[in-house]
């Protein structure tokens, strides 16, 4: 669900930017359109004409990250189909719990953004930090899952299936660390001097976070169905 809203919003932004060049004739499209109350703090018009670039940049960046994982996924499928030496990796049960943790974190992120829209700073902080904590929890869970596999004697170098398992989970973890840094940044930064509002920063970060969430579901399905 969260990923669906975010893509819809990204499409909105792209649509808007594609046609809009009349010197800010339209207010920036954004979270308001999605009906989830996010992005309420964005001022339309002259105050912050430059915040749109962060949405566009994030949309473009997401496409490029997606392409990175698609390349690996196609390599995975080709390699799997091409060889008889495929020794599938049994997915540790812990991964399902991690998945739940990550999904919940997307929910708390949206709750935090709702609080921010209602100008409830304390509520925002609570949910935002909860999201961060859940994100870190997911990462710790992933590390534990890797160690479980290692104890079963399944390493990166064991066979190509395990190589792909580690590179998918590892690359996703690296991107998630970036997301956690962004979460900290939005929580800690003093936005009074910045040229974006906290809600814009929170909204852009939320797209990234929901994207990683959806990406994880895709990777898990790939690893589970393609084992």
């Amino acid at each position: 669900m969260p990923s669906a809203t975010s893509t819809k919003e990204i499409e909105l932004i792209i649509e808007h930017t594609g046609g809009g060049s009349g010197g800010g004739s339209l207010p920036p499209a954004g979270g308001n359109g999605g009906g989830d109350g996010g992005g309420g703090g964005k001022k339309p018009g002259k105050g912050q004409p430059s915040s749109k670039r962060y949405f566009t940049g994030m949309a473009v960046g997401i496409v490029s990250i997606l392409m990175f994982f698609m390349a690996l996924a196609s390599a995975f499928l080709v390699r799997k189909g091409a060889s008889g030496d495929w020794g599938p990796v049994r997915i540790p049960t812990l991964l399902w719990i991690n998945t739940a943790v990550l999904l919940i974190s997307s929910g708390t992120l949206e709750l935090a953004r709702r609080r921010l829209a209602k100008e409830d700073g304390a509520g925002f902080k609570t949910y935002w930090l909860l999201t961060t904590a859940l994100g870190i929890g997911f990462l710790i869970g992933q590390v534990v899952a890797w160690r479980q596999l290692a104890r079963q004697g399944i390493y990166l170098a064991t066979n190509s299936a395990s190589s792909f398992f580690y590179i998918f989970t590892g690359a996703h973890a690296v991107h998630l660390i970036g997301g956690i840094v962004a979460l900290f940044y939005v929580a800690r930064r003093n936005f009074s001097e910045a040229n974006v509002t906290r809600s814009v920063a929170a909204e852009v970060t939320s797209y990234y976070w929901h994207f990683l969430d959806a990406l994880w579901l895709f990777l898990l399905a790939l690893l589970y169905l393609g084992k």
């Binding site: 490029s64 990250i65 392409m67 990175f68 994982f69 390349a71 690996l72 390599a75 390699r79 091409a82 060889s83 030496d85 990166l156 170098a157 064991t158 066979n159 190509s160 395990s162 190589s163 792909f164 580690y166 590179i167 690359a171």
Partner: peptide, 28 residues
Amino acid sequence: IFSVLLAGCCALLSDRLLGSDFFSTTAF
């Protein structure tokens, strides 16, 4: 396209340095 090359380079480097098995072909 640079994302695709980046993915390929990461996998190749991992093959060469960490002994993973993306492109190595002996077992294959």
